[in-house]
Design a protein around this nucleic acid. Structure first.
Lengths: 200, 200
DNA sequence: TATTAGACTGACTGGTCAGTCATTATACCA
DNA sequence: TGGTATAATGACTGACCAGTCAGTCTAATA
């Protein structure tokens, strides 16, 4: 009477995450995931209904981890700017080995409501909004305390995600832009800051 | 002795573009494209070697159109800021019916070098760099004329693309952010502007 | 009008892969 | 130790679809 181990599910999730980040959803074979997880294909289907279910599982897992980090930092006694910096930094550290991770989320948003997309909207969008609201909350704090301009907080939050994504992209050196992730964050801060006295 | 018409190729390209923007590459069937273009499947293969070739054709077509618009506006006697505004506006008008268009480019950048990706890097990245350099050129002008801070121009150009993408995303209302595309552009300008006297 | 070159067609094929399920392995209990 | 419930396996299947090609159509030319 063994129990379906949670760790087994986690193990598959982790393998799927790594694979999908490298190859993208459609180039990922369930066999690839199973092999990387060290289980047989059938085992994957003991823990996930079908391929989309596995995919959505990955994304929710990712978002929930991102949210946990955010909440942790939101609880610390810091300025809004310092909080966002720390979130940026922590996320970057975690996702550095998985530069494709940010692409799991956005591309699906501008698509037609096909099979996968419908489930995406139902299961992922709420989590994504929660994360955005978490960031927006920090930004509202910054506005109240006079650190930031009175920008639309959700839009600024979206820009924060963009800055993060760009930071990861810069690390890949693919576009041959000689900038570090921090510069992407810096540009973001300049966009919402009140006082921008002079230079870089 | 009819000739393989250029318009026929254009027609297929247009149909493929519309379809891929709605459904994404992997959910697009060559049959869909053919039907929308009003030709038979086989005809598609008279003009494109295989599916990736069609896909890359779409992207290069898109990038070259974007570049043409950019060049046109770059030739007008305007401030750097006014130029970027006009580019933003023109691009937005053109791509409003195809909100998925921006997703054709970026997701592929953080992926492993599989079949499709290798060809993407060879054929698309140079075009993309050219476009980025075009934007960066306007930004350099702005820096020289004291409109913008001395930011890294290529990074700022990448941010401009992000702002554009976010503008399109806002139009879809999916995230329930009550902002218009212009606000995304505004945030971008704040990030690179020298003088930011007070709030909105 | 007959000829022909090249455009166009769409039924067909072969490979791929998600998902299944009969079988085997394992842990737990009496 | 034998019995049982559950976990795990991996060979198999059926659907799907990119790409093919033998045949048809069309228009320009002689």
């Amino acid at each position: 009477m063994r129990k379906k181990s949670i760790s087994r599910k986690e193990q598959i999730l982790q393998a799927a995450f790594a694979t999908v980040c490298r190859q993208g959803y459609y180039e990922t074979r369930i066999d690839d995931v199973a092999r990387r997880a060290g289980v047989a294909k059938g085992t994957v289907y003991l823990y996930f209904r079908d391929k989309p279910d596995l995919y959505l599982g990955i994304i929710r897992w990712l978002l929930s981890q991102a949210y946990t980090i955010l909440q942790e930092i939101a609880g610390q006694p810091l300025s809004a700017r310092a909080r966002l910096s720390r979130v940026f930094q922590t996320w970057t550290e975690k996702l550095l080995p998985y530069p494709g991770a940010t692409e799991l989320i956005f591309p699906e948003m501008n698509r037609e409501r096909c099979n996968l997309n419908r489930r995406f909207r139902e299961q992922v969008l709420p989590e994504l909004r929660r994360l955005l609201d978490g960031i927006a909350g920090i930004i509202v704090q910054g506005i109240r305390q006079g650190e930031f301009r009175p920008v639309e907080p959700r839009l600024a939050a979206l820009n924060f995600l963009n800055a993060f994504r760009t930071g990861l992209l810069l690390m890949s050196r693919e576009l041959r832009i000689g900038s570090a992730p921090e510069q992407s964050l810096d540009l973001f801060f300049h966009g919402i800051s009140l006082k921008t006295k002079g230079g870089k």
